[in-house]
Design a protein around this nucleic acid. Structure first.
Length: 980
DNA sequence: TTAGGGTTAG
């Protein structure tokens, strides 16, 4: 008995085959954790097993048995780590590895190569595996399946699948090639480069820099490898670069005999590229070329349909499917059967246009054809539902995936992270990421970028910087500085209202890191120029973008609705309506369709005018939009319901601000009649209108609706994060719930409903709502109105100022430039004591406010010329500086109005009067009813005690009030001097 | 487990 794993089966040839398979399966099982001990053990076992087989076997006439025996002997040496012997052995084996030989024999040799590669990797690392491959040039040909040996295909694939991932350990392939250039021949460099390109493509890294290096040094790269790079670029949406590469090739080659032939792979690659960019005309051209020569295979058919899917022509894609695969087709005609990808493509096509009914229909067809929906299919469906904001259905799809044991990959997880980011729940997004990692998903760049974006969206700059630093750390899964990562960082700068100078400086660094700006980069830069009021600069930038798009053929820089909307809004904000109108004309001329957001900005500009004419213009525009039968502006990515809200809200908000309750109600009703639904935003406008007009009944009627929507919102977030609906918790709730709470508290306390304020506050606190700085400031005011000055001061001293100290401490916290995880969840929590976690700083999704802040930050930073230069290779450094300099960083502070009121309270107490609660139908907090002398005396004493208590317990707040008053007085004096 | 799905701008 020489093996624990059973008796050797029968004749030598079968025994040898058994051994090869056994060792491979052991090595694969041990996947990645091969121990030296295990390799040695199996090397020895294999040698003793080989000795047990007839020693004379090497002289046997049967080539097959002899080669098998020799091959396994080489494998045993590899297992024992004898590198030189192994390499010599491989060179001998090479002579048997000939296309003339039977595929069983060559399959066996491939198995030996696989064992050798795994062993070499273990003993000597990734670079040694690459050396093995290029020093035995016959081996690397197996990275392409030879069409003339179909029986060998499974072995070839297994070989490539096992060996290529080993090489991903070479983290800097271009550097590796650069070094190899001194010792390797061009032939070897060519092989090396081709293999490294394959590895990059397979592991999702950008293969282009490798190709670029090889071409720069005039090293031959086979067409097939270049075409692979083109496909990878197309997959990564780098269409311009992909086209440029393909354009260097002629569609034909000339054979040695002088015949002209189509260049193999050229048309299929062109088709793939055209399909990805949704260029149906080009796809049609390539496809018909292939089809006429009967060279259109299953992949080409899928590509061709994909073109129509991307172009949002779902029914055309489905029509092609029916043409390619007619129903009732003879099941035995092998080529004409659709595979799961063909079905998936049609499902994707209908998902693109939001046609869920057809998605379901084709899902049925897919199942009927005997396929089971896999993770790709589910991902497409999840993405569609995410776009429509249908969280309930997303949750049931996730359940269904769990039930059918389809495990999630980075792709559906990224969809979940993205939607939570957009819902301003970075904590939820991080929890999903963590769950993915726990389930063994390897994160990629898209997934981490999505985490970074979740932080940027909600103004959690520290979190954004941490994710960015992770992406900038070589060797971390997904780490790379690509244009999306750069854009996400740039968005942080725009949202924090960085001075244009800083954003422009960042933009100028792009070239240094070999990145090209895309339309989004320009949109952000132009946005920053607009925020800073530099409209002439933004026009220049727009012209530059257009020039690059036309002269430089960078089609990704074509003007679009985003950038034009940004410029138009820039003009509207500075009151240049004629210029704004000019931008609309430009859109029309370019055939760019304005969407709901474009129109919302126009309506906002008019509705906010103080005259009623302005509102009338806005109403007329709204009505004409709704009258339009086709309503092209309704096609917003985020779904129809949101588009309706977008165009109705400017009027709702403007009317609420002007206290026109009737008009707010009317517009709200019109929105509902048009098929819209009340949202937290629209209900908040109603609530505000009622508050401003002292309509407490109205306030009371709306509040429960707001609470219901708030709960639904967080329930949805928790459906996505935990997979099940947990109890009421508002912890994931964004700023959206904080605003109505402030309004509600204000309205209640003005109406003298102090008990109700306390009740609501406690209830929301218990439900886990993260109060923002405004909420606390409002609470202070409400406590004064409730006749509770001591408690009001307590909130400032022990909540607001403590949060302030905490925030400052956090900014001072050291930055980990190379975090091992992108998550802030993995950081130790800040010292909080008994304070609940506050909301991060208010995000700046509000352009006028941003413009204001950008002006102030610019002034503050006037004397700090070094902020950009100091960290020229560290793109996040200025952001770190800004979050401390920006007026935003001081979110946690008592507001001016709060300090003024508390100052009045102190004066009031000093004058011997108590702070009386506001009572219903009374309007002064400090009213003093007529009292007899004794009562007066008692009250004066009581006021003194309260005052003393406040001085004793809240010295910092008292001090702050004094400073604030001095500052106010001196600034008033300054203003008087200015005016005199 | 080749393919097909996601990431960044108003």
């Amino acid at each position: 008995m020489w093996l624990h794993y059973g008796q050797p089966p029968g004749p030598p040839s079968a025994t040898l085959a058994f051994l090869a398979n056994l060792i491979l399966s052991v090595m694969r099982e041990e996947d990645g954790v091969l121990s030296q001990d295990l390799l040695q053990r199996w090397g020895n076992r294999l040698q003793s097993a080989l000795r047990h087989i007839d020693p004379g076997i090497q002289d046997m006439p049967s080539n097959l048995v002899r080669v098998r025996w020799n091959g396994l002997f080489v494998a045993s040496m590899a297992l024992l780590g004898k590198l030189d012997d192994t390499m010599d052995g491989c060179s001998v084996l090479f002579h048997q590895d000939d296309p003339k030989h039977k595929s069983t024999l060559r399959g066996h040799i491939l198995q030996v190569y696989t064992i050798v590669a795994l062993s070499v990797f273990h003993y000597h690392g990734a670079a040694a595996v690459l050396d093995f491959l290029i020093e035995h040039p016959w081996v690397d040909k197996y990275f392409t399946a030879e069409p003339n040996s179909p029986a060998l295909v499974p072995d070839i694939k297994r070989f490539a699948r096992t060996v290529l991932p080993l090489l991903s350990g070479i983290t800097d392939p271009v550097g590796h090639l650069q070094e190899a250039r001194t010792i390797r021949s061009d032939r070897q460099l060519s092989a090396m480069g081709s293999i490294l390109i394959r590895v990059a493509a397979r592991t999702g890294r950008d293969p282009y820099p490798i190709l670029e290096f090889l071409q720069r040094h005039k090293i031959f790269v086979p067409d097939e490898v270049v075409f692979m790079v083109i496909k990878e670029l197309a997959r990564a949406n780098s269409f311009d670069l992909a086209s440029q590469l393909l354009e260097r090739y002629s569609p034909e080659v000339v054979t040695p005999k002088g015949e002209r032939r189509p260049r193999p792979g050229f048309h299929a690659t062109g088709l793939f590229l055209a399909s990805r960019r949704g260029d149906v005309a080009a796809a049609e051209k390539y496809y018909s070329f292939l089809s006429k020569r009967s060279q259109a295979d299953a992949d080409d058919k899928a590509s061709y349909m994909h073109a129509y899917a991307v172009a949002s022509q779902a029914s055309k894609a489905a029509k092609l499917f029916d043409e390619f695969f007619p129903a009732g087709d003879n099941p035995r005609s092998k080529h004409e059967h659709p595979n799961i990808v063909h079905y998936t493509t049609i499902i994707f096509a209908y998902a693109q246009v939001g046609d869920l009914e057809s998605v379901n229909l084709w899902l049925g067809k897919l199942s009927h054809a005997g396929f089971r929906p896999d993770v790709h299919v589910y991902s497409i469906i999840l993405q569609t539902l995410a776009q429509r904001g249908d969280i309930e259905s997303m949750s049931s799809v996730l359940d269904q995936m769990r039930r059918s044991k389809v495990s999630l990959t980075a792709v559906p997880y990224t969809t979940l992270i993205t939607i939570l980011g957009k819902r301003q729940d970075p904590h939820g997004a991080e929890r999903i990421y963590k769950r993915a990692i726990d389930e063994g998903v390897v994160p990629d760049r898209e997934m981490v970028t999505s985490i970074m974006n979740a932080h940027v969206e909600s103004g959690s700059w520290q979190g954004a910087i941490r994710a960015f630093d992770y992406l900038m750390t070589p060797g971390r899964p997904g780490a790379a500085l690509t244009i999306e990562v750069f854009n996400t960082l740039m968005k942080a700068y725009v949202l924090i209202a960085a001075p244009f100078r800083i954003v422009a400086h960042l933009f100028r660094q792009l070239g240094k890191v070999n990145l090209r700006p895309d339309a989004r980069t320009f949109a952000l830069l132009i946005q920053s120029a607009c925020d800073s009021g530099f409209m002439d600069i933004s026009e220049d930038l727009y012209k530059e973008m257009e020039r690059l798009a036309t002269e430089d053929k960078q089609t990704s820089l074509k003007a679009n609705v985003h950038v034009l909307t940004i410029i138009m809004r820039g003009y509207l904000l500075t009151g240049r309506r004629l210029k704004a109108k000019g931008v609309m004309d430009r859109m029309k001329a370019l055939g760019v369709e304005p969407n709901a957001i474009t129109y919302a900005h126009i309506m906002k500009a008019y509705a906010e005018q103080t005259t009623s004419e302005g509102a009338q213009v806005a109403e007329n525009l709204l009505r004409s939009l709704m009258r339009d039968e086709k309503r092209p502006w309704l096609q917003l990515e985020r779904g129809r319901r949101l588009a309706l809200e977008t165009v109705y809200r400017p009027l709702l908000n403007a009317y609420a601000k002007r206290e026109l309750v009737y008009d707010v109600e009317r517009i709200h009703r019109e929105m509902m009649d048009a098929g819209g639904e009340p949202t937290l935003g629209t209900l908040t406008a109603l609530l505000d209108a009622y508050r401003r007009t002292g309509n407490i009944e109205g306030v009371r009627s709306i509040w429960p609706e707001i609470r219901r929507l708030g709960h639904e919102y967080t329930r949805h977030n928790s459906l996505l994060t935990s997979g099940q609906s947990s109890g009421p918790s508002l912890s994931g709730l964004g700023i959206i719930m904080c605003i109505p709470l402030s309004i509600y508290v204000d309205a209640l306390s003005v109406a003298g409903e102090h008990g109700e304020v306390a009740l609501v506050w406690k209830m929301l606190k218990d439900e886990g709502l993260q109060f923002d700085s405004h909420n606390w400031n409002h609470l202070v005011v409400a406590l004064v109105r409730a006749g509770e000055p001591h408690r009001a001061f307590d909130i400032v001293e022990n909540v607001i100022l403590r949060y302030q100290a905490q925030a400052r401490a956090q900014y001072g916290r050291g930055r980990d430039m190379h975090p091992s995880s992108p998550l802030s969840l993995d950081l130790p929590p800040p010292e909080e004591g008994d304070l609940p976690t506050p909301r991060p700083e208010a995000p700046l999704h509000n352009a006028p406010r941003r413009a204001q802040l950008s002006e102030r930050t610019t002034k503050r930073m006037r004397n700090m010329t070094s902020i950009e230069e100091r960290g020229s290779q560290d793109f996040a450094h200025p952001l770190l500086m800004l979050q401390q300099l920006s007026p935003l960083w001081n979110t946690w502070r008592p507001h001016g109005a709060t300090l003024t009121l508390l100052g009045q309270v102190l004066d009031h107490l000093r004058s011997g009067r108590l702070v009386q609660p506001v009572r219903p139908n009374a309007d002064a907090a400090f009213e003093q009813a007529a009292l007899d002398a004794t009562e007066m005396k008692l009250r004066t004493e009581a006021a003194g005690i309260v005052l003393g208590g406040i001085y004793d317990a809240f010295p910092r707040t008292v001090q702050l009030i004094a400073e604030y008053e001095i500052m106010k007085r001196s600034s008033q004096r300054g203003m008087q001097q200015d005016s005199s």
